[in-house]
Simulated assay, not measured.
Amino acid sequence: MGSPLGDFIRTKRDSIQPESLGLPDRGRRRSPGLRRLDLAARAGISVEYLTRIEQGRDRNPSVAVVHALADALSLDRSERDHLRYLAKITGGVCSAHTQPAPPRRDVRPSVLETLRLLEPGIAMVTNRLGDVLAHTSGYESVTSHTGLLDADPPNLTRYVFTDPRARTFFADWDEVADELAFDLWLGPSVENSEWFTTELATVAGPEFTRRLNRHVVPRRGALRLNHPSGYELQLLRETFELSSDAQQLVVFLPADERTAQAADRLRHQPHGRLRAIS
């Protein structure tokens, strides 16, 4: 049985061409990418130890080893952060015996007041598991008639992976799917993440599981939407971490004048008021 840490290291190793690191071409390999022998040598550890980490038989590598592997894989800052996070939760998975708990869904009054101040802008409060906890009328207007807010409670991750309408609504569906799968690893606790992914995997199928285990660190560029009314929207995202709540306030800003005009027209359609789920 593997581990999140081992899966990520193996995936990154398979994606690296030896020539990009200045290593000689050693001919045909049984698998693509960097050989374990070469990665182990670059990290200063034994091949046997690297194999144990990748296969999940060693779940507690030292901080020095994690940093050495990050250097050996030439990870960027976001990937290094993810590697350290996976090392942390992988070490805790084998000792977690508590009953998984559902994620927190209440939003503090001061955060709800902040949303009201952002009206009629486009904003929402979510958590790493994709629950849409509260939103402005502007957010409701740009997601109207897409089915995203139909569930009780609405969940963006479930919508993207299980509702066929999502593939049309999100112009860059693949990138959005990678983002949401990645964010599940950053959930408020290992228990919550396991609780949710077990539930989702039964309905989302192999497409979700494959993305979850790829550990692709997302770029999080502009969000492009195809609204059912025919408008094409391009939104920039500003995300504010609500660390004490394990939640995020996400504000969406029109990236161009056409989007601004389309959002204004959508806002003038009746969609209701601020909704909070508790």
Rank of each mutant, 00 (worst) to 15 (best):
Q247N: 11
Q17S: 10
H215V: 07
P254E: 01
G6Q: 05
L148E: 04
Y49H: 15
R29V: 06
A134Q: 02
R219Y: 01
V111K: 05
P32E: 01
L200K: 06
L115Y: 04
G138Q: 06
S193R: 15
G187T: 05
V125I: 10
Q234T: 13
E179S: 13
R108M: 09
L236W: 00
I9V: 12
E140F: 00
I122G: 00
W195D: 06
L34Q: 00
L86G: 06
D174R: 08
L69T: 04
P228T: 01
S3A: 12
A166N: 07
A68N: 08
D178V: 00
V111I: 11
S31E: 08
G221S: 02
L37H: 11
P120A: 07
G2L: 13
R10D: 00
L266M: 11
G221K: 11
P164H: 09
I53N: 07
N192T: 14
R26N: 06
R214D: 09
S229I: 10
V142R: 06
F240G: 07
F169G: 01
I16E: 00
S46E: 12
A123L: 02
L39I: 04
A151T: 12
A123V: 06
G147P: 07
E207T: 13
E54G: 04
S78T: 10
L133K: 03
T202S: 12
D7K: 14
Y49T: 13
L21K: 02
L253F: 11
R116S: 08
A40F: 02
G22W: 03
R219T: 01
D152V: 12
G56W: 05
E191D: 14
R224C: 07
E179K: 05
R158E: 09
R59N: 14
I9G: 06
A246V: 06
L133M: 03
N192P: 02
N127F: 07
A171G: 07
S74K: 13
E119S: 05
T98V: 10
E48V: 08
S74L: 11
R84Y: 15
S3D: 00
W173L: 09
T198S: 14
I122K: 03
A246E: 13
H67E: 09
R42C: 02
L118H: 07
G272A: 08
I89L: 13
F252M: 03
S15I: 03
V65P: 08
G91C: 00
P188C: 15
L274K: 13
G187V: 08
Q17H: 14
G230I: 06
A68R: 03
A87G: 14
T168L: 15
T239C: 14
L34I: 03
D7F: 13
D183G: 10
I277M: 08
V47S: 11
P102L: 15
Q247I: 15
L37Q: 13
N155F: 02
D76R: 04
R104D: 12
P103N: 09
S243G: 10
P154N: 07
A70E: 01
L200S: 01
D7E: 14
D163S: 08
R36N: 09
F161E: 07
R105H: 09
L236T: 05
R26Y: 10
D25K: 04
S278F: 13
P4L: 04
P61L: 08
S15Q: 11
E79Y: 08
T157Q: 02
A101F: 12
E241N: 03
S244Q: 15
T259C: 05
N127K: 09
R52N: 12
D25W: 01
V93P: 03
A134Y: 06
S62T: 06
I89A: 06
S141Q: 11
R108I: 04
M1N: 10
D245S: 14
